[in-house]
């Protein structure tokens, strides 16, 4: 991995968030969240519906602006003009961010151009292979099943080889085999020294994949169980 070369100063912490607050009208969704995720760590975020998991992830990805607080990814500030920080993030959310009338390869090629990836053809092949989509490369997204679209969204998120992966309920809607593929991907991810933060409603999946479990309740992090060995099974 090119993390250290790319990023000489942010070696110790992958994600650092401090004092994150977010209000939506009458409701305070996040009320001061402090969070760090280290390199080589996969952390899972548990919380009830509406606890603010998605909002927190979107703030970390730079998609939503926090009312207060700061986010740093590998030591780089994430803000409106934070292009350098954005390059380090791979994000897969509830929506696939794909275009229905383009093929799998065309969708990835578009994002490869946006990220300025050199040797894009090879990277696209690799990402498709990693998510078991090689045989669908030239099919239009519209014709794919929901699960396949979701896997393609995953391929999109890792296409530019980000250092930090943010996944919002990655396992929902996937069949057992795809969940296993994803688990394998995350284990390699951590083994290569990169970092990931994911949310899930499945305690089983979360504990199997992650090294560390966090719980979000009432707009604050209420639990942090670090250092248990990930079984990494899938």
């Amino acid at each position: 991995m090119s993390i250290t070369a790319d990023n000489p100063d942010g070696g110790s912490v992958a994600i650092a968030a401090a004092g994150i607050r977010k209000e939506y009208g009458d409701r305070a969704v996040l009320r001061g969240v402090d969070l760090t995720v280290g390199w080589g760590e996969v952390a899972v975020l548990f919380g009830a519906n509406g606890a603010g998991k998605t909002t927190l992830l979107r703030i970390l990805a730079g998609l939503t602006r926090a009312d207060d607080g700061a986010v740093r990814l590998a030591g780089r500030p994430m803000h409106r003009r934070g292009n350098r920080a954005r390059r380090l993030v791979g994000f897969a959310g509830h929506q696939t961010m794909l275009y229905n009338d383009l093929t799998c390869r065309e969708n990835l090629a578009f994002y490869a151009r946006l990220y300025g990836i050199r040797d894009a053809g090879q990277r696209i092949d690799d990402a498709l292979a990693q998510l078991n989509l090689s045989d669908r490369a030239n099919r239009r997204v519209r014709t794919l099943s929901h699960g396949m679209q979701k896997r393609l969204a995953m391929a999109r998120a890792i296409l530019h080889e980000p250092a930090v992966l943010l996944l919002d309920e990655p396992e929902s809607g996937l069949d057992a085999a795809s969940v296993a593929t994803l688990g394998e991907l995350l284990r390699e991810w951590a083994a290569s020294g990169r970092a990931a933060l994911l949310t899930t409603h499945s305690v089983e999946v979360g504990l199997a994949w992650a090294h560390r479990a966090l719980t979000l309740d009432g707009g604050r992090l209420t639990g942090d169980v670090p250092g248990y060995p990930s079984t990494g099974s899938g």
Binding site: G25, D26, A28, G219
Partner: peptide
């Protein structure tokens, strides 16, 4: 008023 509501809600 909105701030008070917010505090009450959370």
């Amino acid at each position: 008023l909105a701030q008070l509501r917010r505090d009450a809600n959370s």
